[in-house]
Amino acid sequence: MTALATVNAYLNPFHRPAGALDLGPLTRGIVIVAGSAMTTLCVIAIMRGILGLTPDLPHLQNWAIAVHVATVVPCVPLGLYLLLAPKGTPMHKQLGKLWVALMVVTATSTLWIHGLGNFSWIHIFVPMTYRAAWMIITSARARNFKKHRNEIIGLFLGALMIPGIFSFVIDGRLMNVLLLG
């Protein structure tokens, strides 16, 4: 690598030669658009809540909803960062472990939102998250980076973005109330 290429790679870590974990252009575009849009919506909704621009939020009296929101909201920008940033670094590994742990806690907390055993269609994402978390860990340990990448993309777009969209568009849900009042 030339000195100029080294300087450019240091200044812009997202512009580097493709590696085993790098996303293709279409997937990268989908991840950037979905992750950026969801992060923006989360920031706007939370700021509206902090600034008192929303009605009362009885949702937060339920400990399961409070844990769910506190763990899922950081997963959006963190997942976006991890999918776009350089892979295999110590920071990537530590933040990746944090992201998977937050996703598992998020999924687990949903089991108590309406009381254990009171499930709806959206709870299908709980076993999907558990399975993906297991596969992410085992594939990374086995150094099967293609499977590792695909599981993370599936978890990010499937179990994070899809329910996230519903949380903003279904009337009465906390994020819907925070964003739209």
Rank of each mutant, 00 (worst) to 15 (best):
L98H: 03
A140Q: 12
A142W: 09
I122H: 05
T71G: 02
L157H: 01
A132T: 07
N150I: 03
L82Q: 06
V105H: 06
L84S: 06
R143H: 13
H68K: 08
L57I: 15
L157W: 04
F119G: 02
I65W: 00
L57Q: 14
G79Y: 11
R141D: 12
D56L: 14
H92F: 10
V100E: 05
G88E: 07
K97N: 10
A107I: 08
G117Q: 01
V126W: 10
K93Q: 13
L80H: 04
L84A: 10
L160P: 00
P90E: 10
P55D: 12
L180S: 12
R131I: 14
I162W: 03
L57W: 08
F168A: 02
G115K: 08
T106Y: 05
W121S: 13
L53F: 10
M135S: 10
V100Q: 08
H123I: 05
V72C: 05
A85T: 11
M103I: 01
S167R: 08
D171T: 07
F125K: 03
G158Y: 04
S139C: 06
L111Y: 04
K97R: 15
L82K: 01
L57T: 09
A133E: 04
M135G: 00
P77H: 11
L95M: 15
K147S: 10
A142S: 14
M175R: 03
M103W: 01
L53P: 00
